[in-house]
């Protein structure tokens, strides 16, 4: 029983780490806890921490906390965790089953880095076309997108600070796009930069932050909002530093 409750907390943690909303994780833990026979479940989650207490029938309480360091987005993992949590609620999974499923899910691989490089390139190219760029701009944007993901890869290697990585990324994009204009390869850097910024901008983060705020998870919402705000500032700072040091190409 206690072992199972421990696994529930692990499942919740993994869900948060794969990009689930606070609200959803709280609900899943609640459901699983009651399904396993807890008398009362208290869950409190903010984006960086979780506290879970199960009150058992025999009067004992069981509490665990988790520090959530860096969440990423992995919806395949989230999907499987969600399935697992459904199965725990409805079926008779033994603690051995849950353990095996969890380690199976943890072993899931994301796409290799070269696929991500290709994705960044395609996204940047597509959005350059989207915002009115021509084929030539889109092609350059595609190339810069690939460079951008490589830069992020090295940023991740040396320094896991997200804000710094966004700053460097934004500066790289601007530098390369301005260089293309100065070499007279493209008339304007606008659509190339915008296409690439679309891969950096925390638009969804902002939507989620406001949604958390409006639906009652105020603290989680505020934390997210500040994070999004800092990322937007970092993107702007990366752009500014290139303009200030190198001047705007005309």
């Amino acid at each position: 029983m206690l072992e199972k409750l421990g696994y529930i907390v692990n499942i919740g943690e993994q869900m948060l780490l794969s990009g689930a909303e606070v609200h959803r994780v709280e609900e899943s833990i609640n459901r699983m806890g009651y399904a396993l026979g807890a008398k009362r479940v208290d869950v409190f989650i903010i984006t960086s921490s979780m506290v879970v207490t199960f009150h058992l029938e025999n009067g004992e309480t069981y509490t665990q906390t988790r520090r959530i360091l860096s969440a990423s987005t992995d919806y395949e993992k989230l999907h499987r965790l969600n399935d697992l949590s459904r199965n725990i609620c409805s079926g008779e999974l033994t603690s051995e089953d849950i353990k095996n499923k969890l380690s199976e899910i943890s072993a899931l691989k994301c796409f290799p880095v070269w696929v991500e490089v290709l994705c960044y390139a395609v996204i940047a190219g597509a959005f350059t076309l989207f915002f009115g760029g021509g084929i030539l701009e889109a092609a350059f944007s595609f190339a810069i997108g690939a460079v951008l993901r490589t830069v992020i890869y090295f940023c991740d290697k040396i320094n896991s600070n997200k804000i710094f990585s966004k700053f460097v990324s934004s500066a790289t994009i601007t530098l390369l796009a301005f260089a293309l204009v100065r070499l007279k390869l493209i008339p304007s850097a606008d659509t190339v930069i915008i296409g690439n910024i679309m891969t950096l901008i925390p638009g969804i983060g902002l939507t989620n932050a406001l949604r958390d705020l409006f639906t009652g998870d105020s603290i989680a919402g505020l934390l997210r909002f500040i994070e999004v705000f800092l990322i937007a500032l970092a993107i702007a700072a990366g752009y500014f530093i290139v303009v200030i040091l190198g001047g705007m190409p005309v």
Binding site: G19, Y75, M198, N208
Partner: peptide, 17 residues
């Protein structure tokens, strides 16, 4: 599957980049 999966991806073109 969780709703976030589709909300985050579907709204991508609307992000005010």
């Amino acid at each position: 599957t969780p709703t976030t999966t589709f909300i985050t991806t579907s709204l991508i073109p609307l992000i005010p980049g």
